[in-house]
């Protein structure tokens, strides 16, 4: 568990973070979201003592981080930044094994760990001997994520890791990361200004503005009840209702039973996907089928429009 209590930090005269308190449970995929300059990166960098807070207290697993050696703390926490920050004079493999080597793991243990990471992140082994300059942005960031996971830390901090990537690589890495989080149960603290990314990944999130915490909760609860106009605007203003549809799977509103529908949609798809398909095919209802293609029931436009609460 990560806990920040009444943390403040100013750079010179400008306050970056003010009276900030937050609890992040173990195993959460926690997203810190907000416009640029809102202090979200500062909060992240205070967790691994890259920035020392002016006031307040930060605990990781019940231990005050001020009592720990910063280097030791950082070696136990994974860290990924926007441009990957790979070491240009090391090969991809050397980059991945940076922390294990700092921790003086044996060569055989390093090699085994490298194999495991290559499998976990589906890295093409041919890339391992290349230098960062020879990799694409997506490949670099895949190596960057592998490097953060190398020493098997319980906590991983990610500072807008996918912001500079093309949409295809970004979506791929987001899926990869979500899978890794689900399987490993690691705590991930993820900073982004991209609302779509935040909603796609988060199990819990906090919206920040001007160095303050504005709202915290599950993505759905924030979408359903934004506390003020800032959060509403940040979530997408007009298209907020559409975003909400994105969070709800079709099966939640499905009417079970037989269907004569000619067009079908997967049960796991979102209501937004369903609405999109209805508009595209000019239908007012769709059949719903499971992964094996078995028909489960129907979903109607009226039900989507009249839906009261997604959860």
């Amino acid at each position: 568990m990560i806990e920040l209590r009444n943390v403040s930090k100013s750079f010179g005269a400008t306050p970056a973070v003010a009276d900030f308190s937050l609890k992040i449970e173990n195993g959460a995929f926690f997203v810190l979201a907000g416009p640029s300059g809102c202090g979200k990166s500062t909060v992240l960098r205070m967790i691994n003592a890259m920035i020392v807070p002016g006031k307040g207290q930060i605990e990781v697993d019940g231990q005050d981080i001020r009592a720990m050696e910063p280097e030791k703390l950082r070696r136990s926490i994974g860290y990924v930044i926007q441009s990957a920050g790979l070491f240009p004079h090391w090969t991809a493999a050397d980059n991945v094994l940076a922390v294990p080597r700092l921790l003086k793991w044996s060569p055989s243990r390093c090699a085994a760990r490298l194999d495991a990471l290559v499998a976990l992140l589906r890295i093409d082994p041919a890339l391992l001997d290349r230098y960062p300059r020879q990799l694409s942005g997506g490949q670099q960031q895949r190596i960057g994520v592998a490097r953060a996971l190398a020493a098997d830390p319980d906590i991983v901090l990610m500072d807008e890791p996918f912001a500079a990537l093309d949409p295809v690589s970004r979506a791929e890495l987001q899926d990869e990361l979500r899978g890794i989080h689900a399987r490993s149960g690691k705590t991930i603290v993820f900073v982004t200004h991209d609302m779509d990314e935040a909603l796609r990944l988060a199990t819990g999130m906090a919206v920040m503005n001007g160095g303050r915490l504005i709202q915290t909760g599950s993505p759905a609860s924030i979408l359903l009840a934004p506390v003020d106009d800032f959060v509403r605007d940040f979530l997408g203003g007009e298209s907020l209702q559409l975003r909400l549809l994105d969070l709800v799977p079709v099966e939640k509103l499905m009417k079970p039973g037989k269907t004569k529908a000619t067009e079908t949609i997967a049960a796991g798809a979102s209501l937004k996907n369903a609405l999109n398909l209805m508009l595209a095919r000019r239908r007012s209802f769709l059949g719903v089928e499971d992964a094996s293609g078995k028909r489960l029931g129907e979903i109607h436009l009226n039900d989507i429009v009249a839906r009261r609460d997604a959860n």
Binding site: M50, L73, Y79, G85, L102
Partner: peptide, 12 residues
Amino acid sequence: PTRDAAMGMGFA
């Protein structure tokens, strides 16, 4: 970013 990453990973 290289220096930042190194510091964040626990390089002394």
